[in-house]
Lab assay of single mutants.
Amino acid sequence: LQLFIKTLTGKTFTVEMEPSDTIENLKAKIQDKEGIPPDQQRLIFAGKQLEDGRTLSDYNIQKESTLHLVL
Rank of each mutant, 00 (worst) to 15 (best):
P19N: 15
Q40A: 09
I36V: 11
V15R: 00
Q41E: 01
V15E: 01
E24Y: 13
A46D: 10
T14A: 11
I23A: 02
S20T: 13
F45Q: 03
Q62P: 12
K6G: 03
D21K: 05
M17H: 04
G10P: 02
Q62R: 09
K27P: 00
S65M: 08
G47K: 04
M17C: 04
E16P: 06
S57W: 11
K11P: 07
K6Y: 08
I61H: 02
E34A: 15
L67Q: 02
D32Y: 09
D52F: 04
H68Y: 09
L69F: 03
I44C: 05
S20M: 11
T12V: 14
T14H: 12
I5L: 03
D52A: 07
N60F: 08
P19M: 11
A28E: 08
D58H: 11
Q62L: 10
T22R: 06
H68S: 06
G47A: 04
D32R: 13
Q2E: 09
R54Q: 10
P19S: 12
K6L: 10
E34F: 12
S20R: 11
L1D: 05
Q2Y: 10
L69T: 01
S20P: 04
D52N: 09
L71W: 09
M17P: 02
G53V: 08
K33F: 09
P38H: 13
T55R: 13
I23Y: 02
F13Q: 02
P38M: 14
L8G: 15
K63Y: 11
P38E: 14
T22I: 06
L43D: 00
T66P: 03
T7V: 10
E64L: 10
E16F: 15
E18V: 12
E18K: 10
L56S: 01
L67D: 01
T66V: 11
A28D: 09
Q2F: 10
H68D: 07
S57E: 09
L3V: 11
A28S: 11
L69S: 01
R42L: 13
S20H: 12
I30T: 01
T22C: 03
T9Y: 13
E51I: 10
E64A: 09
F13V: 06
R42G: 05
P37C: 04
E24Q: 12
I5V: 09
K11W: 08
R54G: 08
S20F: 15
Y59V: 03
T9M: 08
L43I: 11
G53E: 08
E18N: 15
D21N: 10
E18F: 14
D52Y: 05
